[in-house]
Design a protein around this nucleic acid. Sequence first.
DNA 1: CTTGGGAATATCT
DNA 2: TAGATATTC
Length: 730
Amino acid sequence: MTERVISLIDMDCFYCQVEARLNPSLDGRPMAVIQYNQWKGGGIIAVNYEARDKGVIRSMRGDDAKKHCPEIILVSVPTVREKADLTRYRDAGREVLAVLCRFSNCVQRASVDEAYIDLTKAVEERMKSLSQFSPDKWKSTFVVGYSTNSSNDEGERKNGFRAWLEDSDSLKNTASLKLAVGALIVEEIRETVLSETGFKCSAGIAHNKILAKLACGLHKPNRQTILPLECVLELYKTLPVKKIKNLGGKLGDNVVEKLGCKTMSDLLKFTEKELQAKYDEKAGSWLYNIARGLDNEPVTARLLSKSIGCCKNFPGRAALNKTKDVHHWINKLAEELSERLLEDEVMNKRRANLLTVSMHLEINKKDNASSKSVVLSSYEVDKIFIVAEQALRKVCKVDPSIDNWYPPIKHLGLSAGKFSNSSNKILKFFKLSENSNLNSTKTNCNTDNAAPISENENKSSFFERMFQRDVSDSNKKLNMVPDFSKHDLYVDSEDSQSSMVKAVNENRESPDESQKDNIKRKLFNLENDDNELEHIDGKKTETDSKKYFVIEQSAVNLNEKNVEKKNTLTNFLNQQVKQEEEWIKPEELFPDISQIDDDLLSALPLSYRNKVMKLKESFDRDLNTKEHGVINNIAVSNGEKLSSESLSAGNSSFKCEECGEIVEDYELHQDMHVAIKLDKELNSIPQVVNRTSSSTINDKDKKRKLKSCGKKKNSDNTKKMKSIDMFFKK
DNA sequence: CTTGGGAATATCT
DNA sequence: TAGATATTC
Ligand SMILES: Nc1ccn([C@H]2C[C@H](O)[C@@H](COP(=O)(O)OP(=O)(O)OP(=O)(O)O)O2)c(=O)n1
Ligand SMILES: [Mg+2]
């Protein structure tokens, strides 16, 4: 019939696995991941199964974990900008997602380590070719009701599975057979995830999301579980209500206490109307159906998060009560957010338009949560800082002239959301222009990296990872994820934007429409066979070999070329020279030579710019040409390798000479500097400064600018310059 | 609340 | 709709 086949895949003790992959000596030993090890040994956020056996649980302090398990190894989450930084785990999660995408066009990221997959179609396909159902093909599949829950005994598993398969077969239970085929595919998926990422996971296979999620947890770790509809009621007889997703909180408590339901089967005695009367219409119906194993929630194809944010707590005495400290932390959060947003834009071709500042204030000893949203018109740290600070002030109503901040801040958060299609010129460096409209460009799951697992991979930047997929793979993805962008990534007509955001978008798309249109049909493919980028006093000397060409491309067959031409920023700067004849003529690129888009121009290589300039001079105009454009400002210094002693998991880390930050992924970090520069030059919105508020902010603004100047100075002193590529090439 | 932190999603009003 | 609340990982 129309039974879906849904799987939920959940990585086992995920952060622990990520750390163990980084440092294999941790393998097989009791281990937990903590953050902030100063206070009571840090807070545990992930525990591997060896340590779980000893009674260590999440939310324990490191010190307590040692009591349960003296041999436990506590690995710290990296601290960047004085706060925990989860980038490492988000990146690892994306690796997994990229593998999942190969098996279905309907993959929904549910968390950093979980995803739903709708396998209905894949199962139908497989049914056609599958000749025989030999139970041996299912290597790690349990069936609810055919083995003891929460035991991973292999003998039991095997017998149970075979019995169920025979039952289903002889009864011609097509719904169950579909689950069996789904489980076979999931076996393959999990095997692929393991071989390509090194991570183990568990999975649930059922006809809907709630049951798949429930099943997934029944035989962790490293096993998968089928939950056929026929077995639900039996399972529910002993299943505590709160085990069901969404019933783990207050609603679940209420169902238990007010309805007296200890187990899920206790819910069966209520009519739908009774439940609706007790709760609201929606929740009532939901409960009624869930109690019967029914759930219509679709798997929504979405690989990207809808918001990107960071936050930090300031508990107890650490509450921020000095303006200086408040500013310090807004700045740290703004820095992290800016970096992540920039990477997100390059990888995902979207821009966040709304910034939500959240805070918990201590008022009369009580925790008071609130939030304020403002337009996010630039990804620059300073801009984020200013609007965030303003938003915070509106809630706190604190006298700007006083050093003390009141009420004390116990929690600060910055989150960016309301994404829309990026019109960022940065993107023009990475892809053929627009034809890649909503329907084509956005469809690929370009948040993912499908690069094979290898030593190289850990060192490759997101630019590299992003573009390393081969053509066929990418096309497959394009086809497989048809509505990805329209429905889930971008705010279209359907999910209309707030007036606040709309206003800004109108503002954003201002000038040079004619030229933009023109550019849309061109590809800028920068090429350069020279590894040395020399950097003198903020200026660049250009070697002869730096060349550049532009291909004219019809709007139709772009997909393939698009993928082929995509490249890393590094390679972008280091590729082979192309014939100068291939360059697009300046007069073609700038049909109206009197109206040259400076942003675009500054992004072009010097030799090409010179051509344009000559053309323009011939138009007899005195030009105020930019002395050095974006490309020329790209300075790459080699990082200084640090001893990994003091750092978690024994990873190689590097000190960036440009900003002094200690980073794990040096290339990525350098790419970020490049991207920041690109962003600054290409992506700032011409905007009228809000006069009323700018005066009060001015003071801090200056300070902040001074600060970033200091960083720049640092980079100017850099003597040795090397290409990113050279640094890591073996 | 009192040091269970950081992050993301969905729903309600 | 923005802001708060609930839930989850
Ligand atoms: N309160 C929580 C719960 C989880 N996580 C992080 C750490 C986990 O590694 C990851 C995935 O969460 P899971 O609930 O899936 O837990 P694990 O993957 O660690 O273990 P399991 O094997 O039970 O899935 O999310 C977290 O930071 N804080
Ligand atoms: Mg997990």
